[in-house]
């Protein structure tokens, strides 16, 4: 499945004194098998952008093309798109409402009119993906779970619709390091095993650096950069300029190089940095580092 945004602009409160252009002439497409990271500071247009991908918002100008067909404004078109493109909002656990975990996750499939058996299968599968044991949690009230577990129930609710594209808006915000890892691992496995296309919106550069195979940087309603992570995260000055900051690791590698160590200063993943530093030290004979 592919979704294309063609010259999309979105203006909030058009024609009023509060008129605000949240997206300006956006042009991009998502293709099968991609893992896209979207970064940008608050107000850069990330949330507005992703809401166009599943028909929650319609462009003020331009068009959304799904699998080669231009989206109309009809309710039917939008519903069909929402079934294929699942959107997990920020703090998705605030949207839990059912008495039990099972009922909450089953809500979507039930509305699709699926059989009881199919509904149960879907809930089971979705819970497995997010790492919640079906028997242990199905009858629990979602409101008695920890923050991280609630977040996972909310994600499972979207997964139970079997979306072809999964969009997550800051899925790890407010979770502890372990809860973060859990969710990221689930999402990554979903991408690897079930070939679900993933769009991950995040403030966390390290998260995106680690997982995405394509990174989109948003600033003031425009796409500033759209490239593989290696091309994005090596542009430290540009990232600093728009207030995002580069991953720690690349800052370290640059500082080492500046201090005279013979290392590749384009590395931004910790594992590679370790190997590179050990290699550089083994090579050894380099000039002594200058004072920092």
């Amino acid at each position: 499945m592919s979704v294309q945004l063609i010259n999309v602009s979105h203006i909030y409160a058009q024609g009023t004194p509060f008129e605000f252009a949240a997206l300006k002439d956006i042009h991009f497409s998502i293709d099968k098998d991609e893992f896209i990271g979207i970064i940008g500071h608050t107000g850069s247009g990330k949330s507005t952008l992703i809401q166009h991908l599943n028909g929650l918002l319609s462009p003020t100008e331009g068009s959304v093309v799904v699998d080669g067909v231009k989206m109309g404004d009809s309710k039917g078109d939008k519903l069909a798109l929402r079934r294929k493109v699942g959107l997990v909002f920020q703090y998705a656990e605030h949207q839990l409402f059912e008495e039990t975990v099972f009922k909450d996750i089953a809500f979507g499939p039930k509305n699709l009119g699926l059989s009881e058996e199919e509904i149960e299968n879907r809930v089971r599968d979705a819970m497995e993906v997010v790492g919640l044991d079906f028997e242990t949690y199905k009858e629990r009230s979602p409101f008695e779970l920890s923050g991280g577990q609630m977040r996972r129930v909310a994600i499972a609710g979207v997964l139970s619709m079997k979306p072809e594209i999964l969009i997550l808006d800051e899925p790890t915000a407010g979770l502890d390091p372990y809860g973060k890892e859990d969710i990221l691992r689930s999402v990554y496995q979903l991408h690897e095993r079930q070939k679900t296309t993933v769009v991950l919106v995040s403030h966390n550069m390290d998260e995106v650096a680690r997982l995405a195979n394509r990174v989109i940087v948003m600033s003031s309603g425009e796409i500033l950069m759209d490239a593989p992570p290696a091309e994005i995260f090596t542009q430290v000055e540009k990232l600093n300029e728009i207030g995002l900051g580069a991953p720690d690791i690349i800052c370290l590698m640059r500082a080492l190089k500046k201090a005279g160590m013979d290392v590749d200063d384009q590395i931004f993943r910790a594992e590679q940095a370790k190997e590179e530093i050990l290699r550089a030290l083994k090579r050894g004979e380099g000039a002594p580092c200058s004072k920092i």
Binding site: L256, L281, G286, P288, I292
Partner: peptide, 13 residues
Amino acid sequence: TVDELVENLCQFN
């Protein structure tokens, strides 16, 4: 910090 690590690694170089 980055600076601390750089300083410590540089002594080996």
